[in-house]
Deep mutational scan, measured.
Amino acid sequence: GALPANLDDMKVAELKQELKLRSLPVSGTKTELIERLRAYQDQ
């Protein structure tokens, strides 16, 4: 599914939920979580 547009405004817990939905690792800082989601979306 498409990512929420406001990733930077989301809480870390919400970002981790998005990562879990995509079976991605949820470790790292908020910035790393956002980068991981964006990289996944670009595939």
Results as ranks from 00 to 15, higher is better:
Gly1Asp: 02
Leu3Asp: 15
Tyr40Gln: 07
Gly28Pro: 00
Glu14Ser: 09
Lys30Asn: 04
Asp9Ser: 13
Asp42Met: 10
Leu15Trp: 00
Lys20Pro: 03
Asp42Ile: 02
Arg36Phe: 00
Val12Glu: 12
Ser23Lys: 13
Thr31His: 08
Tyr40Phe: 13
Leu3Pro: 00
Glu14Trp: 04
Gln17Met: 12
Leu24His: 00
Lys16His: 13
Gln41Glu: 15
Lys30Arg: 11
Asp8Leu: 15
Tyr40Leu: 09
Thr31Phe: 05
Leu19His: 00
Leu15Gln: 01
Asp9Asn: 11
Asp42His: 06
Thr31Ile: 12
Pro4His: 12
Val26Cys: 06
Ser23Tyr: 11
Gln41Asn: 14
Ile34Val: 06
Ala2Gly: 11
Gln43Ser: 10
Val26Thr: 13
Asp42Phe: 06
Ser27Leu: 03
Gln17Pro: 01
Glu14Tyr: 07
Gln17Lys: 05
Leu21Lys: 13
Asp8Gly: 14
Thr31Asn: 04
Gln41Cys: 12
Pro25Thr: 04
Val26Phe: 10
Lys20His: 04
Ser27Pro: 09
Lys30Gln: 09
Glu14His: 13
Glu35Met: 05
Gln41Ser: 12
Ala2Leu: 14
Ala39Met: 15
Asn6Ala: 06
Glu35Cys: 12
Asp42Ala: 14
Arg22Pro: 02
Arg38Trp: 06
Leu15Ile: 13
Val26Trp: 02
Thr29Val: 05
Leu21Gln: 12
Pro25Glu: 09
Leu21Ser: 09
Arg22Gln: 09
Asp8Gln: 13
Ile34Gln: 13
Met10Ala: 08
Pro4Glu: 15
Lys11Val: 09
Val26Met: 10
Ala2Pro: 10
Ser23Met: 07
Leu15Phe: 02
Gly1Gln: 04
Pro4Lys: 13
Ile34Asp: 02
Lys20Cys: 15
Asn6Glu: 11
Asp8Val: 12
Pro4Phe: 05
Leu37Arg: 03
Met10Asp: 00
Leu7Gly: 04
Asp9Thr: 14
Lys16Ser: 11
Gly28Ser: 00
Gln41Met: 12
Ser23Arg: 10
Asp8Lys: 10
Leu7Phe: 14
Asn6Gln: 06
Thr31Leu: 08
Lys20Arg: 11
Ala2Gln: 15
Asn6Ile: 09
Ala5Ile: 15
Glu18Ala: 10
Ile34Ala: 07
Thr29Tyr: 03
Arg38Ile: 09
Met10Glu: 00
Met10Tyr: 09
Gln41Ile: 10
Ser23Glu: 12
Asp9Glu: 15
Ile34Trp: 04
Pro4Gln: 15
Gln17Glu: 12
Lys30Ala: 03
Arg22Cys: 07
Leu19Tyr: 00
Met10Thr: 02
Leu37Thr: 03
Thr29Pro: 11
